[in-house]
Amino acid sequence: MKEEIIIAGFGGQGVLSMGKILAYSGIMQDQEVSWMPSYGPEMRGGTANVTVILSDNKISSPILNTFDTAIILNQQSLDKFEDAVKPGGLLLYDPNGIVNPPKRKDINIFKIEGAEEAAKMGNPKTFNMIVLGAFLKVKPIVKTENVKKGLEKSLPERYHKLIPLNIEAIEKGQEVVQEIQKV
Rank of each mutant, 00 (worst) to 15 (best):
E116Y: 08
E117I: 15
E117S: 10
A118S: 12
A118I: 13
K120Q: 08
P124T: 14
K125V: 06
T126C: 05
F127E: 06
M129R: 11
M129I: 10
M129G: 02
I130V: 14
I130R: 04
L132I: 04
L132P: 02
L132R: 07
G133E: 10
A134I: 02
F135Y: 15
F135K: 15
V138S: 01
K139T: 07
K139I: 02
K139F: 05
P140N: 15
I141A: 07
V142S: 11
K143R: 08
K143W: 01
E145W: 00
E145F: 01
K149Y: 00
E152I: 05
E152A: 07
S154I: 07
L155Y: 10
P156H: 06
R158I: 10
Y159C: 01
Y159T: 08
H160T: 13
K161H: 10
P164S: 01
P164Q: 02
L165E: 15
N166V: 09
I167M: 15
I167Q: 08
I167T: 11
E168G: 01
E168Y: 04
A169Y: 08
A169V: 03
A169R: 02
I170C: 12
I170G: 14
E171P: 11
E171Q: 09
K172S: 10
Q174V: 06
Q174Y: 10
Q174T: 06
Q174N: 06
E175W: 09
V176Q: 07
E179W: 08
E179Y: 06
E179Q: 14
